Simulated assay, not measured.
Amino acid sequence: MRASGVRVTLVVHEHKRLGRGIELATLAEELKASGVGLHFLTGELQGSHDPSGVVFTVLAALSGMEREYIRDRTLEGHESARKRGKTIGGAGVTDDHMLSMALHLREQEMSLRDIAARLVITTGKKKGQHPSPATVMRMLREHDEQSTAPSAS
Rank of each mutant, 00 (worst) to 15 (best):
M1L: 10
G5Y: 04
G5T: 10
V6T: 14
V6N: 14
V8R: 14
T9H: 00
H15Q: 15
R17M: 06
L18K: 13
A25G: 06
T26S: 09
L27H: 08
A28W: 00
A28K: 00
E29Y: 07
E30A: 07
S34L: 06
G35L: 07
G37M: 00
T42R: 15
E44S: 08
G47Q: 03
H49D: 07
D50E: 08
G53P: 13
V55Y: 13
F56W: 10
L59I: 03
A60E: 10
M65Y: 13
E66Y: 09
Y69K: 10
R71W: 03
R73K: 14
T74N: 08
E76L: 09
A81C: 07
A81P: 10
K86T: 11
T87D: 05
T87I: 04
G89Y: 03
G90I: 00
G90M: 07
A91D: 12
G92H: 10
V93A: 04
D95P: 01
M101R: 13
A102E: 10
L105H: 06
R106Q: 14
E109V: 15
M110E: 14
L112K: 11
A116V: 03
L119P: 01
L119K: 02
V120D: 01
V120S: 07
G124T: 01
K127Q: 12
K127T: 02
G128F: 04
Q129D: 00
H130M: 01
P131R: 06
P133T: 05
T135C: 04
V136E: 03
M137P: 06
L140H: 12
H143Y: 15
D144H: 07
D144Q: 03
E145F: 08
E145Y: 10
S147Q: 15
S147F: 14
A149M: 01
P150K: 11
